[in-house]
Design a protein around this nucleic acid. Structure first.
Length: 269
DNA sequence: GGCTTATGCGCAG
DNA sequence: TGCGCCTAAGCCA
């Protein structure tokens, strides 16, 4: 489930449960032994999320940089940590908590200069306090690519993935095919505001919920909706649109599935 | 139990 | 363009 909200939650978990303590860092799988040795025994001093990137700063000035990719996962627990099973790339063990990383696309030890390099390349993050809404409007507004492609470009906006992309376009009733530079800046700004709302809600809940209660099936309109009621279009190919009943459409765009309602999402420049 | 699919990226070629 | 990552949920038998 790694869109930006997930990484943000994980950063918070590291900050609450491991920061401030010396940490034993190992690589049970063996693929990260050299990196683990650089961090082992040092104090974790800060945990930070930027888009889908996680940075853990250690007291010797080095950072662990992790990008989960599609199948990466952190597991947290209370000591004693169990015997590692499967491919545990990294294990962090503090006095109060342990964390296991599996399946990540990227796991490396970097310097603060390298961290700044990653941050420079990333677009504005709707979850960060320094969110830079106008920078998103500028970056999206000068591109010819369709808005559906721009929302997945981490240099345009950081932390948005395939679920938020599909859902925020639906909620705006915006056609996925409108080129960025043909969009009204007010519309682009509204997309940012909605992303910020949805992703903050995702951080709170731990799951992505984008449907309004009134658009959910009867019996699921109160409280936390079940997964099948949580989205408007994402992974709902062929099912009736929750608003107009038209079958939800899907196609591939840049190697990823794009979902949309061809009737509701009528707004074009 | 097996098979398919996936919320994402970097990289080889 | 396709693969690696090598997880885990959902589906089928």
């Amino acid at each position: 489930m790694p869109e930006g909200h997930t990484i943000r939650r994980q950063a918070k978990a590291f900050a609450a449960e491991l920061a401030g303590d010396k940490v034993v860092v190992t690589s049970p799988q063996g693929r990260f032994e050299a990196g683990a040795a650089l961090l082992d025994g040092h104090e974790l001093v800060r945990a930070e999320a930027a888009g889908k990137h996680l940075f853990l700063r250690f007291s010797n000035g080095r950072y662990l940089h992790v990008h989960l990719g599609l199948i990466g996962k952190w597991d947290f627990g209370v000591p004693p940590a169990p015997e590692p099973t499967g491919a545990v790339r990294v294990r962090l063990e503090g006095p109060r908590a342990w964390a296991d990383l599996r399946g990540a696309t990227l796991c490396e030890v970097v310097t603060s200069a390298q961290v700044r390099g990653v941050l420079r390349r990333l677009g504005p993050d709707p979850l960060r306090r320094d969110g830079r809404r106008e920078e998103f409007v500028r970056r999206a507004g000068r591109r010819v690519l369709p808005i559906a492609a721009l929302l997945m470009d981490q240099e345009v906006v950081a932390g948005v993935g395939n679920v938020y992309r599909a859902e925020v376009l639906f909620r705006a009733r915006l056609s996925p095919d409108v080129p960025g530079r043909e969009l009204d800046p007010g519309v682009v700004g509204a997309l940012w505001d909605d992303l910020s709302t949805l992703m903050r809600d995702g951080v709170k809940r731990g799951v992505i919920v984008t449907t309004l209660p009134a658009d959910r099936p009867p019996g699921t309109r109160r409280g936390v909706p079940p997964r099948e009621a949580a989205h408007y279009v994402y992974r709902r190919t062929g099912l009736p649109c929750r608003v107009c009943g038209t079958p939800v459409a899907t196609r591939e765009l840049n190697g990823r599935n794009l979902y949309w309602c061809p009737v509701c999402q009528h707004i074009r420049p």
